[in-house]
Design a protein around this nucleic acid. Structure first.
Lengths: 342, 342
DNA sequence: GTTTAGCACTCTAGCTTGAAGAGTGCTAAA
DNA sequence: TTTAGCACTCTTCAAGCTAGAGTGCTAAAC
């Protein structure tokens, strides 16, 4: 790929900037008039022809203006894009919003509201992956007897996650026996990552506690569920926002995307593969056919210094990248701050 | 409203039946040819003119066929509609589906899958209201000490609902003191409906336990949250199905509906006001402007013989009412059966 | 060598027109 | 009371046309 000289870069930036706001193919005249008053349309035309040949721009048809190609956007976000600060109003809104959120102690609530804030400010659709239970470590396992036949198992992780389940007691067990089992289990399991509680380890426990096998079985089931619980931990915000984008005025395209929104599995997969820091995936880089005309900007968030989930903004490839990146950074910071206090 | 003679009823039924499948205005000729071979188009025409005058049919424009009015649909579901049994295939699918669900013990999971099944079979969008915590009665309140500073409050309802929260202990309390508070609270509160735990009652408790006020405060907060937790307990299934309906080929209409789907509050309100048994609300009967061209068929479901939630199917007013009613009845039965076993 | 003006050419979006088709309402006859 | 016939209305669709935007190329200007 030939390096672009300064002028080509400026013209490319102009085309992309303009296209992002107008959603209309950008002609040489527009660039000359609005962004490069010192150059004539004809000159711009030549440069744009070059940019097209190099793969940064495309033409919907002869005698239309140019629109950025996927490669063009990629170059833009990598090298051309200027950081865009939030407006005072937006800053204020966010500060206020997260001040409100401080009152909430449930992590899920915070996460869901974060999805709302993201879509409110960006006007795109937001995706938020809730904290992954299986990336947490087991802190405590508690057994609370309810009556002679039933007990409540409570699983507490180091990330403040609580999950519980009622189990049937196989036989009447004395308080002593129960607490014996509990302390043994806690000894063995505390501090272990839930994801990595290997089958082997569980099998070992199983044999060691073979006389209490039924009880154990049920408790282990809870763990099992927890570690495989990837499903449906994704929250959406502003799904209807995509309908405001002119590229989705065609019902068929919306249909596929909307159907994708209902597939929690696939959504969470997209977010799970997110790197630390802000990442941008444009069009086919998402490796999901429904998203070929969309871009996804994501960031991870932390709980006790470990990345446990991710937030993201989904829009057309013609997205306000600069703004979205700023917003995502800001919000993930606020979120991290909030979660640290839990 | 003048009563309709037998022939008018049959013609109205023919028009509605046809319109439901074709989504096209139905002409007199079509009715004559397909449903009333013994009458000529001209006769039908006269009858249809009458039906229009009576308010059961409307004409999009002169020289188009007729389409049912809201009043027409209302008459249809009240008096004209034949019950439609499920196909063998659908029966099989449902049986299989709910056999699978038996393995799940979490009520929320069952509810969410029910939304899926509803939309799968009907090809419309489904709405499901999760069991309302505040309609349950308090069974037990448990305090599990975690360490010197923190404890876990566990709230268990008679409907098998569990909710918990970590609270800070104001001062080091002995096990004895804690269990004293607990048994006192349980004595006072057990069996009470969460919704009806009145402010007065809570205030009384507050004064009686004034020395342990901080602790109590936090626990009461949990109750408070529970009773006001109406928000976001609605699950959607097959939201993208509405896009298959020709009445929603216009993006603008979809946008409003989709935005409504994101307003958990309003959705749950719609479902909360559902009567016992199957209820059908057509168009403006929903009293929600976004739903003026939609119908909603709902039914409540039971947990331990008390209605605690509702399931519903949302489609265009031109909906296959007969089929949807059958499906809703069937599924709410299956759901009730399943929940009884919990 | 680079930039620009000029011009012919291309393509789309939007408008008009006309014909076909579906359906109605009315009238008069069966 | 029902039906056939007919004039009339309205929509839909394709075809044809125009205006406008934008291009690429060439030749002249800097």
């Amino acid at each position: 790929m030939t390096a672009l000289n300064e002028r080509k870069q400026q013209i490319l930036r102009a085309v992309i900037t303009d296209y992002i706001v107008t959603a209309e193919p950008v002609g040489s005249r527009t660039v000359s008039r609005r962004y490069h008053t010192d150059l004539s349309a004809a000159t711009i035309r030549n440069e744009m022809a070059d940019l097209e040949e190099l793969g940064y721009l495309t033409q919907p048809h002869t005698s239309a203006g140019r629109i950025p190609s996927q490669q063009g956007y990629r170059f833009y976000v990598d090298s051309l894009m200027d950081a865009m600060p939030l407006s005072a109003q937006e800053e204020k809104y966010l500060s206020h919003f997260y001040l409100q959120l401080q009152k909430m102690k449930e992590i899920d609530q915070i996460i869901q509201h974060t999805a709302k804030a993201l879509s409110m400010i960006t006007k795109y659709t937001s995706l938020v992956l809730g904290p992954q239970l299986r990336r947490s470590r087991l802190k405590q396992l508690r057994l609370v007897p309810l009556n002679e036949k039933r007990a409540l198992v409570v699983l507490i992780t180091d990330t403040g996650f609580i999950k519980n389940k009622i189990i049937e007691l196989p036989q009447a067990l004395s308080e002593n026996e129960l607490s014996g089992i509990m302390s043994y289990l806690n000894e063995q399991l505390a501090g272990k990552s839930i994801e990595l509680l290997s089958a082997a380890q569980l099998r070992k426990l199983r044999s060691e506690l073979c006389n209490k096998i039924d009880l154990l079985e049920q408790m282990l089931l809870l763990l099992d569920e927890s570690s495989s619980e990837s499903e449906s931990r994704v929250f959406l915000g502003g799904a209807s926002n995509i309908l405001n984008q002119p590229e989705f005025k065609d019902i068929e395209k919306v249909k596929h995307l909307l159907a994708l929104f209902e597939e929690g599995e696939r959504l969470s997969f997209m977010l799970e593969t997110t790197m630390a820091g802000v990442s941008i995936r444009i069009g086919t880089e998402n490796r999901i056919s429904e998203m070929n005309e969309c871009s996804l900007v994501t960031a991870t968030y932390m709980l006790h210094d470990r990345p446990v989930g991710a937030i993201g903004v989904l829009g057309p490839t013609r997205m306000e990248y600069a703004k979205v990146v700023t917003v995502i950074e800001k919000i993930s910071n606020k979120l991290n701050g909030l979660l640290d206090m839990l």
